[in-house]
Design a protein around this nucleic acid. Structure first.
Length: 216
DNA sequence: CGCGGGATTGACT
DNA sequence: GTCAATCCCGCGT
């Protein structure tokens, strides 16, 4: 049940297009020891579907970590934001408020600081047999945490994503990548202002958050 | 070196 | 709606 991994080309495009098209795609996290001896027994793979994203569109975007730097308009290039200037497809992971991590994927041409924040995901499938309403009710709900994956900090905690994955190349990584997923119709996609960027002047009004409308 | 603040979350009034 | 937790980063000194 695995899809085709997204190539680097997918990310070398307008950040808004990438943010929109990441909706419905499958974020994959492989967790476990890298030592070959322990790998087989203890590795596990988690697949979740991306349902909400935000675009951070380069050096002029006052909401972006890479904006407003001394080198404007080239962008604020610091130790922290360096990854955003790197090749598209890299993971940009940062610590926020001292306690949560946020996962972004770098977009556009190398040297241009832009990225898409993954704001929410849903569990794509259960980690075991779907029809488990029989005898084994304990195993029936490992991923009922569906609702708790709405938020960038929460999904990183669930997927065990932290600073160690900052700079991970999601095109080649064996720990974190993205696969093809659902093809969405335009009507399924919603747009809104980004969250938590009131400091961003006129850029706080941009409708650069994208989400899958819940079915009603 | 010190200080202010944050692409959040959960608890609480 | 308000607020605090918690710590790294960016910048001024």
């Amino acid at each position: 049940m695995q899809g085709r991994r997204l190539s680097r080309k997918f990310f070398v495009r307008s950040t808004l297009a990438v943010a929109r098209e990441l909706l419905g795609k499958v974020l994959v996290r492989k967790i476990g020891p890298t030592s070959p001896r322990l790998r087989r027994a203890r590795q596990k793979i988690i697949r979740v579907m991306i349902i909400e994203t935000e675009a951070y569109c380069g050096p002029r975007d006052l909401a972006s970590h890479a904006s407003q730097g001394p080198a404007w308009p080239a962008g604020r290039r610091t130790k922290r934001t360096e990854i955003m200037f790197g090749p598209p497809g890299l993971a940009y992971v940062y610590l926020i408020y001292g306690m949560y991590y946020c996962l972004n994927i770098v977009t556009e041409a190398e040297g241009y600081p832009a990225a898409v924040l993954i704001r929410a995901v849903s569990v794509k499938r259960l980690g075991h047999n779907k029809n488990s309403n029989s005898h084994n009710s304990l195993n029936a709900k490992p991923y009922t945490l569906n609702a708790s994956l709405n938020g960038p900090g929460k999904l990183c905690r669930f997927l065990k994503i932290d600073k160690a994955l900052n700079g991970e190349d999601m095109i080649k990584s064996s720990r974190l990548w993205i696969e093809d997923g659902e093809k969405l119709k335009p009507a399924q996609i919603g747009r809104a202002k980004r969250i938590g960027v009131d400091y961003a002047g006129s850029y706080k009004h941009k409708l650069w958050r994208f989400f899958i409308r819940s079915k009603s």
